[in-house]
Structure formats: C-alpha cells, structure tokens
Write a protein that binds this DNA or RNA. Structure first.
Length: 435
RNA sequence: GGAGAGGUGGGUGAGUGGCUGAAACCACAGGUUUGCUAAACCUGCGUACCUUUUAUAGGGUACCGAGGGUUCGAAUCCCUCCCUCUCCGCCA
C-alpha cells in the first residue's frame, strides 16, 4: 500500500508504475484522488460539526449543574439538530473512506529506478551466471527418473493420500531434504539471523498485511471454518510477527530465518513444468526476512541476495541471477531478483529463490514503524525477504547435476556431514531396502 | 469442551455518565545540582487523521480490546464479537 500523500504528490510516477507493471489502469488513480478529495472535505465538515456539538454538550453540562433547567432544555433541543446533521455527514464519510481504502489497495508498489521496464519474463535481465553446467558422457536423466530408480519420492501414494503435488519423501529422499534444511538454517544463523518457528496458518489480517489479500486468495489454501489460511511462505507469519509495532531506532535491523513447509494452491501449467519436484502444492523452504530503516533497505536487499547466492556456491550448483522487469515482478515489490539453478537432466533453469525489497509497501499495511533517535513522528520501516532456499527444486537440481555413471548421486561437501554419506544410492537401494 | 474473572497510554495501575486524552508510580529523554560503582529535583514524554497560505509551531477530530447501540454528553450503561487469565475435563 502506498501512502495517500505520496500518491497525491507523485501521480505521474504512480500512473507510470501501473502501466509498467501492466496492472489495472490509471483511471484507478483518478478515482482514488477524487474519492480522497471528497473524503477530506467530509472530514473537515464532520469535525467542524463535532466541535460545535462538543461545545454545546459541555455548555449543557454547566447549565444543568447551575440548575438552569430551561436554558439547558433549549440547548438540548438545539443540539439534537446538530446531531442529525452529524449523522448524515458521518455516513457520507464512511462510504467515501471505504472507496478510498479499496482503491488504495489496488495500486501497486512503484518499481525502483534500477528496475528494467518490460512486459514478460523475456524482458528480465540476466545479471550474472555462476558455475559450470555439467557435461555427461552418458544420457543424463531427469530427476523424476532418478527418483524412481533410487526410490526417493513416492508421488503416487502422495496422490492417493492427499492429491497431486503432495509427495512422500522416502529414506535418502527425506534425509537429503532434512540435510538441506539444517544446512540452510545453520548458514543463516552463522550470518546473524534469528531462527524462528512460525505458525503454519495465519488469519486474514496477516494475509492482507504481506499482500496475499486481496486478489490472491487463489494462491492459498483456506480453512474456512476457522478463518485461517495455510501459509504460502514463511514470509507471511514472520513479517506479521511485528505487525502494529513501533521500534526504537536502535532495535533495527531485525533479521529472521524460518524453516516452514509452504502451501500453494496455484494451478499452474501442465507437463514438464510441473513434473516431479518442479512444482508442488507443499514444499519446504527456509525464508529470510529483514526489517530495516528505509535508508538501509537496498543494502539489505544485496546482502540477502549475496547470502542466498553463497548457499548455491557452497552447494556447487550452477545458477544465474535475474533482475526482474516491471511486468514480471509482482504487485507488492519495488525490486526483485530471482535465483535460478541449472537442472542438467531437464536442461532448464529452476527458480529456487526470490529476493525482494518491498520498501514501505508491506510495512504500511502492517503499521510497522520505528522512531528515529531524534524523536519525532514514527516512520514506516522497509521489509525485505528472500528464500534461502526452496528445498525440493534444490534436490531436483542436485540429483540431476550430480548423477554419476553408476547411477549414484554425489553429495556436495557442504552437505556430507548433514546427510551422513557422500553419495546417494551408493549401494543400490540400500538406503531404502529396509522400507 | 464446561465454569468463572478480566481487557485503560512503553509497563504497573486509578478512574461507574459531564472539568479525564485520561491520576499516580515505573521506564525513557532533556536539564539543574551534589559529585563518584550513583542519588535528588525540574521539565518533557501515545497514535492517526483533518486543517492553519507551510511550522522540529498552532488549531481541531477520533481512539481507554473490536464493532454497534442508548444519551445533549460514555473509558464509565446496553448488545455482539475477539482475546487473556484461573479452575475442571481432555490431550501430543
């Protein structure tokens, strides 16, 4: 949510943002400004009337105390008229306010000046590629084939028990995910993040706070009876942790890491895009969240990005970084990077991290503020978050990139102690034969 | 799930219809003074919005869990909802 004053003062930038992001149309801005003007007019009138009514009520109190009953009675009658007037003013104000509130939620965040203008994913800028794509002397398999051979994941029974996109992970398949999760958390803790375990369901206010509502209901599973949503990412509970709070300046920055399963309803496309571990309705992820002063947010964005990239380097996975264009970056972001990992069996890039600066857009909705050392009014903070990292796609890439001629999978050095072995399926089936 | 109690400013906590945006204390910030692992005293100290032809300034309105209602006037009375605590039951 953008500041109303900002929208008033920067109409052109806001209109351009909507065009560049390809969201709505700028008649919303006109409607908003008109409703806002009406709202402010009504506020002025309403408050003016209230001032008079308050004065009258006070006067009546004094008259009553002095025992001047008749004068008081006259004043009461007089004041009743004011009250009726007030009623209609308030009704008008309420509906004007509703219009403003609703339209304000329909205006997207303004992209940072460094963000390329573009319409489609093709307009995203590839910032950097790192690492060597592996070259095999044999036919490289896709991870779903490797998974089958090594019996790491059971998709069919997942479908039976829950539905498509809810797999069971078995034996080494389960353990490699646990190893990755622990590795990610430990790295984050080393970097100074505070680990949190968050609720996996949130209420409507929280979903609105981080921008999942309104309009993105379809993204989330809903427990309607209890008014709760399954979290699509730990970003939602972790950022809302500080909703409606005012920090002292010295308390910032706040940096949190959280491992949670993530639930996504998104229908998505069919075929290869959703094959295997590429796209699931439930997946594990470690999320990183920063709450910072406004002037620090772009440095924090780079810091988080660097952290996530280092994880990929340690995992020895080739990856590239995309700077997302205006049309592909989303409603709430001011600037966003995607990290994509090379998956050698499928010969495609898989998104494993999305790192965004929301500036004050989320924090304004959540009323997360801080007070500067100099005192003065509380100011809205900035929020940044990013994955560090999404687990199943890392597994997919790891399986595909590290497959060996003998059918085993090499485990990267950084994971060996977490995983407890230097390869998966070294003795064919030994990990899972017990099952 | 059953029964009861309660939700006031950063904290504790007064306040049962008008002079209370809210006492007091603590915490915090600034100042004075004495000086020595600090104390005493003074002052300040909620948020949002509107507005004043533009100010680290003034004026106004709203907010005492949330939303409605009664009243000329509500933190104070009524209704609904949410939350917290205690006891009982159940339970990883």
């Amino acid at each position: 949510m953008l500041d109303l004053q900002f929208i008033r003062d920067n109409q052109d930038r806001v209109r351009k943002a909507m065009v560049d992001k390809g969201i709505g149309n700028d008649s919303i801005v006109d409607a908003l400004l008109k409703a806002d003007e009406e709202r402010r007019n009504l506020i002025t009138q309403t408050q003016d009337t209230q001032t008079r009514a308050n004065a009258a009520a006070k006067e009546i109190g004094i008259l009553m105390k002095d025992g001047r009953k008749e004068e008081a009675q006259e004043a009461i009658i007089e004041n009743s008229r004011l009250k009726a007037e007030l009623k209609s003013l308030e009704d008008g104000l309420r509906s004007a306010q509703e219009v403003v509130d609703q339209l304000q939620l329909e205006i997207p965040n303004v992209p940072h000046e460094s963000v390329p203008v573009g319409r489609t994913p093709d307009d995203n800028v590839v910032d950097e590629e790192w690492g060597e794509k592996p070259i095999f002397g044999f036919d490289a398999l896709a991870h779903w084939e490797l998974i089958d051979t090594l019996n790491l994941v059971d998709f069919d029974r997942g479908s039976k028990v829950s539905g498509a996109g809810f797999p069971f992970y078995l034996g080494a398949g389960a353990r490699i995910q646990r190893a990755l999760t622990n590795f990610f958390l430990d790295e984050a803790i080393k970097a100074g993040y505070l680990e949190v375990q968050a609720p996996l369901v949130v209420n409507e206010d929280s979903a609105r706070g981080t921008g999942q509502l309104p309009d993105k209901e379809d993204l989330m599973y809903e427990a309607q009876r209890d008014g709760l949503y399954l979290i699509p990412t730990a970003e939602v509970p972790v950022t809302n942790f500080h909703r409606d709070e005012i920090f002292a300046a010295k308390e910032l920055p706040k940096r949190y890491c959280a491992y949670t399963p993530c639930f996504r309803r998104e229908a998505g496309s069919y075929g290869k895009d959703v094959r295997g571990l590429n796209r699931l309705h439930q997946f594990d992820k470690v999320e990183l969240v920063h709450l910072v002063r406004p002037e620090d947010s772009y440095a924090a964005l780079e810091d988080l990005r660097e952290h996530a990239e280092n994880l990929l380097r340690k995992l020895e996975l080739p990856f590239r970084r995309l700077l997302m264009c205006t049309g592909d970056m989303g409603f709430t972001q001011a600037k966003k990077y995607d990290l994509e990992v090379w998956s050698a069996g499928q010969e495609r890039w898989l998104e494993v991290s999305s790192i965004s600066n929301f500036e004050s857009f989320q924090a304004r909705r959540m009323k997360i503020r801080y007070r500067d050392e100099d005192g003065g009014k509380p100011q809205i903070i900035h929020t940044i978050n990013g994955s560090g990292l999404a687990v199943p796609r890392i597994v997919a890439a790891l399986l595909e990139n590290n497959q060996q001629p003998d059918g085993t999978i090499r485990v990267p050095d950084c994971l060996v102690s977490y995983f407890g072995a230097s390869s998966i399926g070294h003795v064919r089936g030994s990990d899972i034969s017990a099952h």
